[in-house]
């Protein structure tokens, strides 16, 4: 479903041009959940932003292919309409933007781009009520400007709410577990497991094994130094928890 081949990317910062991804290859077949683990600075967030279409990075080689279609030349909103969803590591607070109106506008923009009918106000209200309960947010939070005054955990719940509503084909979860308590971790697991299906893929980026106890991945990859340096089954996550990443930092 998602096929990344020999991806090289760099970013221009204050310290000059920095190579972040150095020939990353990865395949996530439809119906599978893959986890990416790795030390800080290994390129995990860069990878998620490049798949979603952030233009701060320069892709110098390689390709990203979603269900047979190259997506690197598409705008972020075109990728979203094709089913790419990114759960942000640090979701934005956007003062002045009404939450319900924004989510409905986004949902309908995606549907319109796919040639699907818009969701009516009544149907949307039903949908968001149901999913709000699933992610453990109160209706009161929906009436606030988007994420304004939300705790870190509430912002992650808002990400999961959107994922549950949009039902994207390919979900990238960038450290969704960071800053979450046990109940919230279970909620994230519930949302992912409710969406799991033969036509959907997940890329779960995490530092820790904790979340993977709720979301059982099909494969685990270690990203270090801009490349996948090791892949394995779910047992790899447990092994990493014990041995740490030091071995890979040296290897990279």
């Amino acid at each position: 479903m998602l096929k990344i081949d020999n991806l090289h990317a760099r970013v221009e910062g204050d310290a000059g041009v920095v190579e972040i991804l150095k020939g990353l290859s990865l395949g996530v077949p439809a119906g599978e959940v893959h986890a990416i683990m790795g030390p800080n600075g290994s390129g995990k967030s860069t990878l998620s932003h490049i798949i979603a279409g952030r233009d701060d990075y320069e892709v110098t080689a390689g390709s990203v292919n979603l269900s047979g279609e190259e997506i690197l030349d598409l705008d972020p909103n075109e990728r979203a309409a094709k089913g790419v969803f990114l759960s942000f590591q640090h979701p934005m607070e956007i003062p002045g933007v009404a939450t319900m109106n924004f989510i409905r506008t986004a949902l309908n923009a995606q549907r319109k781009a796919r040639g699907e009918a818009e969701v009516s106000a009544a149907d949307f209200l039903r949908l968001i009520r149901e999913k709000t309960k699933l992610v453990g947010l109160t209706d009161e939070k929906l009436k606030r400007p988007f994420n304004v005054g939300f705790s870190g955990g509430e912002k992650k719940r808002m990400e999961m709410l959107q994922m549950a509503i949009f039902e994207p084909r390919f979900c990238i979860m960038d450290e969704t577990d960071s800053g979450l308590d046990i109940d919230a971790l279970k909620m994230v697991g519930d949302v992912v497991n409710s969406l799991r299906g033969p036509d959907r893929g997940f890329l779960v980026i995490t530092h820790y094994q904790r979340l993977l106890e709720h979301i059982r991945p099909d494969h685990v990859h270690v990203l270090a130094g801009g490349r996948i340096v090791k892949s394995g089954g779910p047992e790899l996550a447990a092994e990493l928890e014990k041995s740490g990443y030091d071995q890979f930092i040296e290897a990279a």
Binding site: A52, P76, N77, A81, I94, F102, A106
Partner: peptide, 11 residues
Amino acid sequence: AMFYLRQRGLD
């Protein structure tokens, strides 16, 4: 904020 909104599907 622009990237966030566009990732959600807004042109």
